[in-house]
Simulated assay, not measured.
Amino acid sequence: MTARIDAVRGDITQSDCDAIVNAANSGLMGGGGVDGAIHRAAGPELLQHCRDLKAHYPCGFPVGAAAAIPGCALKARWVIQTVGPNRHRGETDPADLAACFANSLDEAVRVGARSVAFPAISAGVFGWDGDEVARIAVDAVRRSPVLGRLDLVQFVLFSDELLAKFQRALSTR
Rank of each mutant, 00 (worst) to 15 (best):
T2E: 15
A3H: 09
R4F: 13
I5T: 02
D6M: 09
D6W: 11
D6T: 14
V8W: 09
R9E: 15
G10W: 03
G10R: 01
G10N: 03
D11V: 01
D11S: 04
D11L: 00
I12T: 02
I12S: 01
D16H: 13
C17Q: 12
C17V: 05
D18K: 08
A19R: 06
A19F: 09
I20D: 10
I20M: 06
N22K: 03
A23Q: 10
S26V: 08
S26Q: 14
G27C: 07
L28Q: 06
G32S: 12
G33D: 02
V34A: 01
H39F: 12
R40D: 14
A41E: 07
G43L: 05
P44M: 07
L47R: 14
Q48D: 15
H49R: 07
C50S: 15
R51L: 11
R51I: 12
H56W: 11
Y57M: 01
P58C: 01
C59D: 15
F61M: 02
G64L: 06
A65K: 14
A65S: 14
A68T: 08
A68S: 12
I69Q: 11
I69A: 04
G71F: 01
C72L: 05
A73K: 14
K75Q: 13
A76S: 15
A76I: 00
R77W: 10
W78R: 04
Q81N: 14
V83K: 07
H88V: 03
H88S: 08
T92V: 13
P94V: 00
A95F: 09
C100W: 09
F101M: 03
N103Y: 09
N103V: 04
L105E: 06
A108Q: 07
A108F: 07
G112S: 04
S115M: 03
V116Q: 03
A120P: 12
I121F: 05
I121N: 03
S122H: 08
A123V: 03
V125T: 15
V125G: 06
W128C: 02
G130A: 08
E132K: 11
V133T: 03
R135L: 09
R135M: 08
I136E: 01
I136A: 00
V138W: 10
A140K: 04
A140I: 03
A140F: 06
V141S: 00
V141K: 01
V141T: 05
R142P: 02
R143H: 14
R143Q: 13
V146H: 13
G148K: 08
G148T: 06
D151Q: 13
D151A: 10
V153P: 10
V153A: 00
Q154R: 15
L157Y: 03
S159V: 02
D160G: 02
L163P: 10
A164G: 11
A164S: 13
K165I: 00
K165C: 06
F166G: 00
R168V: 06
R168I: 01
A169S: 11
L170P: 08
T172Y: 13
